[in-house]
Design a protein around this nucleic acid. Sequence first.
DNA 1: TTATATATTAACCAGATGGTTAAACCATTT
DNA 2: AAATGGTTTAACCATCTGGTTAATATATAA
Lengths: 215, 215
Amino acid sequence: MKKSKINLKTKDKIMHHAIHEFIEHGYHGARMQNIAERAKVNKALIFYYYTSKDQIYKEVLGRIFKTIFERLNNLSDEPTSVENKVRQIVDVYMSVLIDYPDYIKLMMYELSSGANTVKELNPFGALGMPFSPMGGKIYSFFDGKIRAGEMKQVDIIQLIISIVGQIIISFIGLPIIRTAFESNKMDFDIKIFLEKRKDFIVNLVINGIKPEEKI
Amino acid sequence: MKKSKINLKTKDKIMHHAIHEFIEHGYHGARMQNIAERAKVNKALIFYYYTSKDQIYKEVLGRIFKTIFERLNNLSDEPTSVENKVRQIVDVYMSVLIDYPDYIKLMMYELSSGANTVKELNPFGALGMPFSPMGGKIYSFFDGKIRAGEMKQVDIIQLIISIVGQIIISFIGLPIIRTAFESNKMDFDIKIFLEKRKDFIVNLVINGIKPEEKI
DNA sequence: TTATATATTAACCAGATGGTTAAACCATTT
DNA sequence: AAATGGTTTAACCATCTGGTTAATATATAA
């Protein structure tokens, strides 16, 4: 936990605290008054810098998506094995979620309310990136490996969704998983769990797309 | 779309419409007045049958969980192959989500706000079922198969989380997946997508846990 | 120092929201 | 038909909430 960053300009300070208010309560649950108190400014000041709750919410979402997608796009371009690439992907995705465990909460809010705001400020040029059949780094990597016979001939989009899904559930499902562990009197250490999880996902995927043994 | 069920008693009618109001807007976004209008009753009547917004919300969550878990527990007990069992599990989970595509939205709301209400009314005796290391049908099935050498020696809890995660993302990610498809000018048919998805998940998992080839 | 533009605040407001009340309605029993 | 008890409603209320206003404090330029 860092100390309050007194150097942040007021507008950014407000944004910073707005992010956390929206994360904790979602759009409808968030209160402008709370944001003001968190940022230790008068509520009117928020409306001096931002025009409405709606606008500040959109800006919050925009920042979060930008932060996440910048990191996700941070994949090495160097040629490597299928196994290494899968490990890289899982690593990067997981590390983002570990660094910003709360961001995903807001994305879930968005998705569960139909992702309307997200669609509106469409960062899917960005999201398109990893998924995109044309030009997506990840897509073209796997495409090459399939042609080279280094992995099974699978639907690459489905593969990416599967990888991402296994990772995402590790975070959004945490409250349930934790409760399930505890109600079975098993210890639950989140760090250990996520480490195990990472290995499991990589192994399952690798074995799942390994080419048939040649005889 | 069925016609309005005039035989429903008033209290159930209110509950029915409350479910959909909460699904569409989440706890904070839901309005008692809206529920009243949906159910075509006076708002005061809601408070005649239920004591507060909070209480009706909890009852809504309880119903949803019950509905879902009853279905999930509907797995055949007959002995079968690993492949068939995985297919069964994916089938059952997916069919529940297909039948109640909205229910998951509310579960996401819950999870993203820390699942506090859910924890409180803890149906994880129920949720424990499939996950539980002791007594869980699914768990003990895989346990038996591992001992019999019919599948790899994997962490069964991780396996279940992976299967569930791949399924859940297929639904909560739909808005994003759809947008990604469309922004790449690819047709998106949800039925076809989910069919492909089912096969993909089954294949990936089956191949992922297949025992090493014996030489 | 004074004028000017920017930053910040206390007080305020209209509309919305969860919840209440007292009266009316309706079916059943006597 | 009158009494009874559950059901439904219109009107109401206190509080909360996003947003405004007008005045004040602070920094900058002249």
